[in-house]
């Protein structure tokens, strides 16, 4: 493995730090946001860019120091497929258990019975 030129090292470090910061902010969001539904937003969104940044950093590092390396893209594909689905299932579970939401949540449902378990 040969060493990288300095600009490449800076670029790779930039992407890894970007990814790490977003992953950290995503985890921080779990702690700071007020209720269950709001907390769901943090890990589904902030971490896609978090993982994305680290993946780009890894692709750049291995492509520049050795041969072209793209199989990190598979991680991104799987993440894009699975993150919304797990978020949807968690949101669904939270909705049906009728977890308490923060007081300033506005409920704009016109037909709430469409989304509940109860037989009307």
């Amino acid at each position: 493995m040969n060493t990288l030129p300095q600009w490449a090292e800076l670029l790779v470090s930039f992407f890894i730090i970007l990814g790490a910061s977003f992953t950290f902010i995503g985890s921080l969001g779990l702690l700071r946001l007020p209720d269950f539904m709001a907390r769901l937003h943090a890990p589904t969104k902030a971490t896609t860019l978090g993982v994305g940044g680290i993946i780009i950093g890894s692709m750049l590092y291995f492509s520049l120091s050795d041969t072209l390396s793209l199989h990190e893209l598979l991680i991104a594909i799987f993440l894009f497929l699975t993150a919304p689905i797990s978020a949807h299932l968690l949101a669904k579970a939270g909705l049906h258990l009728e977890l308490k939401l923060t007081d300033n949540t506005r409920d704009l449902r016109k037909k709430p019975e469409q989304y509940s378990d109860k037989d009307s």
Partner: peptide, 12 residues
């Protein structure tokens, strides 16, 4: 997330 809490307006 980084802003102070209680300033968001969630909605269904």
């Amino acid at each position: 997330i980084l802003r102070p809490r209680k300033s968001i307006q969630p909605a269904l």
